[in-house]
Design a protein around this nucleic acid. Structure first.
Length: 433
DNA sequence: GCGATCAGCT
DNA sequence: CACAGCTGATCGC
């Protein structure tokens, strides 16, 4: 196992300090280790610290280091291999992705890095403005060497409205079906704000499954027990696990009583691969975007999403709405514009280039960076990330990024299993430029 | 046999 | 292709 200094959203051991951005499954790999995870101090938000024991009872609670939004902590890490001491200063920034989600700004002897984790900072949204202000305040005029960014929807075609706009559209759809049962697909954590909005707007309770009820109570939502219930007889509105909301399920339910499904999420399921097994749904795509990189494994991305058009039936009985907890392209671009980092790394690694921030944001960098025409692998390998050109006078660092097995076979890489990053000791001459 | 990881699906 | 997360197969101890 390679020795690391610290890891973000990666808990398979080998680091001195760990950071968790939020409690979604694809960011907690390794936390459920048999015998109990106890590899080192674990920083997370207070909300995450409260929820974590229910999902990972094996984690030694004394290792949790809750850090609130806007707060900072100083820590020193000693390298297990060389004994060198590194000082770090970490600041927690609200990510607004799901309850308890954080970004981490980490500055110090390893340079300046921002790990956004999954995030959504809607332009013009008050909370996002506040979060951005907190970030700039923490940066105090310094610049980011490496931005580890949520590139889930990093493609110019992927711009969707703020969540509050889509929440209103969802309320309208439900209101237009006064005699229908309503099934809303959600995950184990997240979209609580949407459910609250629907409940308040329509003055109705919402059924959730028992585990979900426990979660909202732990979150301190609905302390008066007026909104969420596990009694199906009290409401026509049900939030169900997203994977259980399928066309087949809805058709079966409709044999019993009229039911509509609401899928509030990003929009990838609207995409149709040009050569894939696209279902013949009779829709004609309004847009067709080509990501012209040879051998990238993806040909044409098509989407028929038009933010100005009213929501429409996705399939029979089912509405798909772009209620996304991930930043859309304009928001990613705004963060790039604000920070102008020396380097950017996508935290979601896909076999294709279409979501690679280096591909779409090359104009933010010096020219040597954009010469990269290869299917950019999000700077994988165990290589060094050399900082790019920048004004003289500022200190620069080489930052070595290592990941467990990168690259393997194309088939294996289909799995999105590298959300996290482990930061290892820099190679010798630390200063560059 | 158990837990961790992987494959496949939505 | 896949937001996050389930089921079931397979691998290794």
């Amino acid at each position: 196992m390679d020795e690391g200094l610290f890891s973000v959203d990666k808990f398979t051991g080998g680091s001195q300090v760990y950071f968790l951005t939020h409690l979604h499954q694809d960011h907690t790999r390794g936390l459920g280790a048999a015998g109990g995870w106890r590899h080192g101090p674990l920083y997370c938000s207070p909300v995450t610290a409260r929820l974590l024991p229910t999902r990972f009872p094996g984690v030694d609670a004394s290792l949790l280091r809750p850090i609130a939004s806007g707060d900072s902590a100083s820590l020193t890490i000693s390298s297990p291999t060389s004994g060198r001491i590194f000082s770090l200063h970490v600041t927690a920034i609200p990510a607004l992705h799901c309850p308890g989600s954080l970004m981490y700004l980490i500055r110090g002897d390893l340079g300046c890095m921002l790990f956004t984790g999954d995030y959504r900072w809607e332009l013009g949204c008050e909370e996002a403005r506040y979060a951005k202000k907190a970030l700039l305040q923490a940066l105090a005029g310094d610049s980011v060497d490496v931005l580890y960014m949520d590139n889930t929807y990093c493609h110019p075609s992927l711009n969707f409205p703020p969540r509050r706009v889509v929440a209103e559209q969802i309320v309208n759809i439900i209101q237009a079906h006064p005699d229908h049962e309503v099934i809303i697909g959600v995950n184990n954590l997240g979209k609580e704000d949407l459910l609250l909005h629907i409940s308040r707007a329509l003055q109705t309770k919402i059924w959730v499954w028992p585990q979900r009820l426990l979660t909202v109570h732990l979150l301190g939502i609905d302390d008066n027990r007026e909104i969420f219930t596990t009694d199906t007889s009290l409401t026509r509105m049900r939030a169900v696990p997203r994977y259980s909301l399928t066309i087949a399920t809805l058709e079966a339910l409709n044999t019993v009583c009229p039911t509509i499904g609401i899928m509030p999420s990003g929009i990838p399921w609207l995409w149709r691969s040009s050569e894939g097994k696209a279902k013949a749904s009779g829709k004609s795509p309004a847009k067709s975007i080509t990501c012209g990189v040879q051998g990238s494994g993806i040909g044409t991305i098509e989407t028929d999403y038009d933010p100005l058009s009213p929501p429409k039936l996705f399939e029979k009985h089912s509405y798909a709405l772009p209620y996304s907890d991930h930043a859309c392209f304009a928001e990613l671009e705004d963060l790039m514009q604000t920070l102008r980092p020396s380097a950017v790394v996508g935290i979601v690694r896909t076999p294709s280039c279409y979501a690679n921030p280096r591909h779409h944001f090359s104009h933010f960098f010096g020219d040597e960076v954009c010469s990269d025409k290869a299917p950019v692998e999000n700077s994988g390998h165990n290589g060094s990330l050399a900082p790019k050109r920048r004004p003289s006078g500022s200190r620069r660092r080489m930052i070595k990024i290592s990941r467990a097995t990168f690259y393997r076979s194309r088939v294996t890489r289909k799995r999105k299993d590298f959300c996290g990053a482990r930061i290892t000791e820099p190679e010798e001459p630390i200063c560059v430029l």
